[in-house]
């Protein structure tokens, strides 16, 4: 594998697959993608100045305290202002703290690099993740429930499913495989 392919590999595996469960709707997928970017930027601003000054396991311990604190704040904020979103993301909000893409990206920072530039460069990768997650969420919501953004699109009854298999957990794997296939075809072109 060459360098670029290697980076894309990590981008997809670390950035997208851990949150594949949240692609049951566009709002959940996009919402979590935004929270991921938010956590990365804020953890980066606080953690990067200390990178390289601490030894293991203190370094990882400090990073986890930071990400877990941000996850706790986000959890309380959503529970207070967006209770519906908070209940949809209930399991995954705390797990933001150990998201491998955030941890991997922050730990691979070289102290000689410029901090802001590094954060901005990697935010682009998180935006690609956000885009792929949103597309998967949209496809699952349309094919699975015949709806988009909770609005009737193909069927009007919100309690029925157009394709239960697409909306259920196996569908998350199958639709993600389809999205990656399309992504691959588009990249080749």
């Amino acid at each position: 594998m060459n360098g670029n392919e290697d980076k894309n590999h990590l981008l997809i595996i670390l950035g997208i697959t851990p949150v594949i469960a949240l692609t049951d709707s566009v709002v959940n997928a996009a919402g979590f993608g935004i929270l991921l970017i938010f956590t990365f930027i804020f953890s980066g601003i606080i953690y990067l100045p200390f990178r390289g000054r601490l030894k293991e396991p203190t370094d990882t311990f400090v990073l986890l305290i930071l990400t877990a604190t941000i996850a706790s704040i986000l959890n309380d904020f959503l529970a207070c202002h967006f209770p519906q979103s908070a209940s949809n993301l209930t399991l995954f909000l705390p797990l933001l703290a150990v998201n491998s893409f955030i941890v991997y990206t922050l730990k691979s920072y070289d102290p000689q690099e410029k901090k802001i530039k590094y954060i901005l460069n990697h935010t682009k990768k998180f935006l690609i993740c956000l885009l792929l997650l949103t597309i998967t969420g949209a496809l699952r919501e349309i094919i699975g429930r015949g709806r988009l953004f909770e609005q009737a699109l193909l069927i009007s009854d919100p309690t029925t499913y157009l394709s239960l298999i697409v909306y259920s957990p196996p569908g998350a794997f199958l639709v993600m495989a389809l999205v990656l296939f399309i992504y691959r075809v588009l990249r080749k072109k």
Binding site: F173, L180, F181
Partner: peptide
């Protein structure tokens, strides 16, 4: 290839 492998594994 990488993406073929990922897609197959997800399926």
């Amino acid at each position: 290839s990488l993406f073929s492998r990922l897609s197959r594994e997800l399926v």
